[in-house]
Amino acid sequence: MKLRTLRRHLRDAFRSFLRNGWMSFASVATVAITLFLVGVFILAALNIDHLARQTESQVEISIYLKMDTSQDEIRKIEADLNNLPHVHSVRFVPREEGLAWLKETYADEADLFVGLDEDNPLPDAFFIKTDEPARTAELAQTIQSWPQVETVRYAQEEVAKLLEITTVIRQIMLVVVIGLALTATFLISNTIKLTIVSRREEVEVMRLVGASKWYIRMPYFIEGALIGLLGAGIPLLLLVYLYQQYVENTEILSMSVLSMQSVTVPLIVALFGIGLLIGIWGSLSSIRKFLRT
C-alpha cells in the first residue's frame, strides 16, 4: 500500500469516527469498560499467582521421625537430607525443643502441657527448605519413603488454595469478558455500519471504477481498530495510575505485591491486543454484512 493511500484511509477513518459521534463514543466506552475489567482481572491474577509462588517458595517441609529413632539414625538422616538435590537448608528440632516452643506459643493454656515433660508426645523433627518450590512435592515423597520417617508435611493446601482462587478468577473473567467483548463488537459493527451507509455513493463509484476489495475495506478496518485502540488506551492509563497508588499504599504494609514494571508489559499487550481484536472483528462483521465488494 502506498503511503498516500494509507494517509487517505487514515483521514477517512478519523473523519467518520468523529462524524459518528455518539456511536463512536458508546463503542469506545464499551471497549474501555470491557478492557478495564480485563485489566483488573489480569492484575489480580498476576498478583495471586505471584503470592502463590512466593508462599510456595517459603514452604518448609516438615519431617517427623518415628518415636524410636536413635541418635545415630538422626545423624544419618541429617546427612542424607543434606545430600538430597535442591535442599537449601536443614534444621533439626529435637522433641524437647519442640515441646518448649509449644509451651511458649500457647503460654495462656499452660495447663494443657501438664505432665508432658515426663511423657513428651512430640517426635523429633527436621525442617528443610528447597531452592526450587516446584520440587517440594517430589522431595516430600522421597523423604516419606525413608524407614525412620513417620510423616512428611508441607503447606500443600495453602498453595493449592491460592492456585484455585486464580483458576476461579480466570473463569469468571472469561465469562464476563466474553460477554462484554461481544457487546463491544456489536456496537462497533453498528458504528461501522453507519459509516458504510453514509458512504454508499462513494463505495459504489469505487467498485465501479475498479478499486480493489481491500482498498474499499481498509478505512472501515482502520475505524474499527481506532475504536479498539482508544478503548484500550483509556483503561490502560487508568489502571496504571490506580495500580501505582495501590503499590505505594501496600508498600507501607510490606505486603508482597508485584512491582509496577512487572505488570505494565502484560497489561499493555493484553489490553491493546484484545482492543485491536474486538475492533477489527466488529468492523469485519459489518463489512461482511453491508459491503458487497
Partner: peptide, 11 residues
C-alpha cells in the same frame, strides 16, 4: 480524480 485515486494512480 477520485476514480484514479482509488486505483492508486500516481498523483
Amino acid at each position: 480524480a477520485f476514480a484514479m485515486e482509488v486505483v492508486e494512480a500516481p498523483a
